[in-house]
Design a protein around this nucleic acid. Structure first.
Length: 284
DNA sequence: CGACCCCTGCGC
DNA sequence: GCGCAGGGGTCG
């Protein structure tokens, strides 16, 4: 579900918890948590170290790279740990004021803070999950395979990562190793804005086209962050409010409708196993 | 590279 | 019932 704008909106919504201390953590589904903070041979099994989940530690920051969110916590003696949250298709992180958790179905992890607030991780499909890391340095390693954050992608970066590739530009934009944060919605929207056919091979793009595409990606994402993300069905921010970026969509989920710019019928196909929409006359 | 799988819920 | 959904890991 969530792409970069949705995750960034959630990240900002969690910032009020900074400087609060985690006093408890309820792991209701053990298998959504992977503990990579210790060297135990099979970290998926056995008891979780409570300190790895942040208990007794103070929240000091929320960081984001692409679609991934990381909560940094610090112990009194200064030692830091990292809780990485990946939302997958259906994940949500909600900041709840009361002890009673609304919509408790599929809530897998609940942190309780020193002011009584709860931070709930909910994920019906369980494509998302939580990974515990021992330090910010481990986080750098964990994120090493991701490309540059899509909000700041440059033409130079995109050009170097696309050159020589024969796959379609849409498939490349969905590859988090090329750039991190673009998913199915914003890939289609950025390609529309750049006037590029999503089926076009990367190595068939001109340098000016790549420059325009990099700018389109930044603009589409920036506008979507400003609109607090796209709510198609179940995306909600940390305060359980929907976003409005879906109102900006020009091609996504508009197959068969007419192009806003030229009136042509929006086409659709599947690229990289994902539904793909584009305007046959505005995009080539 | 693409194909397939993971899982639940929803609209048709 | 079926097909599809905003993600991503692993396989050949």
């Amino acid at each position: 579900m969530p792409e970069l704008p949705e995750v960034e909106t959630v990240r900002r919504g969690l910032e009020p918890t900074i400087d609060h201390t985690i006093v408890g953590c309820d792991v209701r589904r053990r298998d959504v948590v992977r503990d990579r903070s210790t060297d135990t041979p099979n970290p998926r099994r056995g008891r979780l170290d409570p300190s790895a989940l942040g208990i007794g530690q103070r929240i000091v920051a929320f960081e984001r790279l692409g679609k991934q969110l990381a909560m940094i916590v610090r112990a009194q003696h200064g030692n830091e740990q990292v809780v990485v949250i990946q939302l997958g298709m259906s994940g949500q992180v909600a900041l709840i004021d009361s002890a009673r958790i609304p919509n408790a179905k599929h809530v897998h992890v609940v942190w309780t803070l020193d002011n009584g607030q709860r931070v709930c991780f909910r994920d019906a499909r369980r494509f998302g999950g939580i990974t515990l890391l021992a330090s910010r340095e481990s986080l750098r390693g964990f994120w090493a395979s991701l490309g540059t954050d899509a909000l700041g992608v440059t033409s130079r970066h995109l050009w170097s990562r696309l050159s020589g590739s024969t796959r379609s530009i849409k498939a490349a934009l969905l590859d988090q190793g090329v750039l991190a944060g673009v998913g199915n919605i914003y890939a289609d929207e950025a390609l529309y804005r750049a006037g590029i056919d999503p089926r076009k091979a990367c190595d068939a793009l001109s340098r000016p086209q790549v420059t325009k595409l990099a700018r389109s990606i930044r603009e589409v994402l920036r506008n979507a962050v400003e609109a607090r993300g796209s709510t198609l069905r179940d995306y909600r921010d940390a305060s359980n409010k929907p976003g409005s970026a879906q109102l900006l969509h020009r091609v996504y989920n508009r197959a068969g409708q007419s192009c806003i710019q030229c009136g042509s019928t929006i086409e659709h196909t599947r690229i990289a196993q994902r539904a793909t929409c584009w305007c046959p006359s505005c995009q080539s």
